[in-house]
């Protein structure tokens, strides 16, 4: 088997190695922050798979994140399911919901698609409130202390240790990154890009673009669900605020900043934005203003995001 785009593959490995080393170099706080960034970057990668590569801009991805969060969290909270299994349930939750929503939403395009996904996400959010006797509604549920550790293949894993948390997040990030490398740089990825660039021509070439888009949508939803499940189980809290519109906007922002349609863009975007908000919130209470300004500035001058701009100017293989 040959690896396409070897340079990018090498870069991915270097980035993963650097991330691994980071835990020995960075201060405690940055390791904690990086753990969160990695989890949210997984979410952004799932989103980027759809928005960046396939060209479908969804405004409702919070529902898939929340689906993973709730599927995993509720299975653990009520079913007492062990964490690894709950985690898998979370991924399935995100994927299945995405498949069903995709069946409907993909009948629409561009602006309609954005609004339809927004509406479905709003319904999902309201459902978490409506069934609050199960979900805990906005107040949420705190997972029991017993769920803070688990054993996998005889290995005891303590989720309260910062190093363990970091390495779990990094491992899953690496798996998703390599998986998405295989998807996006291979023949399937070229199909996704073909749909993005010219859906009619792709259709004429005899491809069923609906199926291609549905596949992209489902993968994207499953990855978002993975991120949600990981977040919920790792932080021991599930609540409806993760299903809010704001979460959908955040992931869009991360992707836009980093560079839609670049493999490492979501990581860069999530890192930059998370740290920026983190720093700014100490200085001013109006840090959302910066988010607003950035959205506009990026749109006006860097519609391709950080890595997208670098790719277009200097490094064509960075995709």
């Amino acid at each position: 088997m040959t690896i396409p785009n070897k340079k990018l593959f090498a870069l991915c490995l270097v980035v993963l190695a650097l991330l691994f080393m980071a835990q020995f170099v960075l201060s405690n706080y940055l390791v904690l922050a990086l753990t969160r960034i990695l989890i949210l970057a997984i979410f952004a990668m799932g989103y980027n798979m759809l928005m960046g590569y396939t060209g479908l801009l969804s405004l409702g991805h919070a529902m898939f994140f929340a689906a993973g969060l709730y599927a995993a969290g509720l299975a653990n909270y009520y079913g007492g399911v062990s964490l690894p299994i709950a985690f898998v349930i979370g991924i399935l939750g995100g994927g299945v919901l995405a498949f069903v929503i995709g069946l409907l939403a993909l009948r629409t395009q561009t602006v309609s698609f954005m609004i339809v996904t927004l509406m479905f996400a709003q319904v999902a959010y309201l459902l978490t409130l409506y069934f609050s006797n199960v979900t805990g509604g906005d107040q949420g549920l705190t997972l029991p202390t017993a769920s803070r550790s688990f054993s996998l293949f005889g290995l005891a894993v303590d989720l309260t240790s910062p190093m363990v948390r970091f390495n779990i997040a990094l491992t899953l990030f690496a798996v998703v990154l390599i998986g998405l490398f295989a998807v996006t740089q291979g023949p399937l990825g070229r199909l996704f890009v073909a749909v993005r660039e010219n859906i009619n021509r792709t259709e004429m070439l005899g491809f069923d673009t609906y199926r291609i888009r549905l596949l992209a949508f489902t993968i994207s939803g499953a990855i978002s669900g993975l991120a949600g499940a990981l977040y919920g189980l790792m932080f021991g809290f599930i609540g409806s605020s993760f299903a809010e519109f704001r979460s959908s906007i955040e992931v869009l922002l991360f992707t836009l900043v980093g560079g839609p349609g670049t493999l490492l863009g979501p990581l860069v975007g999530t890192g930059v934005m998370t740290m920026l908000i983190d720093r700014l919130s100490g200085m001013t209470s109006a840090y959302l203003i910066v988010v607003g300004v950035l959205l506009i500035v990026i749109n006006l001058w860097f519609p391709k995001g950080i890595l997208g701009t670098i790719r277009d100017r200097w490094v064509p293989w960075l995709k």
Binding site: M114, G292, L295
Partner: peptide, 9 residues
């Protein structure tokens, strides 16, 4: 859409 989200913030 993205820009007007920015404006609204």
């Amino acid at each position: 859409i993205v820009s007007t989200i920015g404006i609204s913030y």
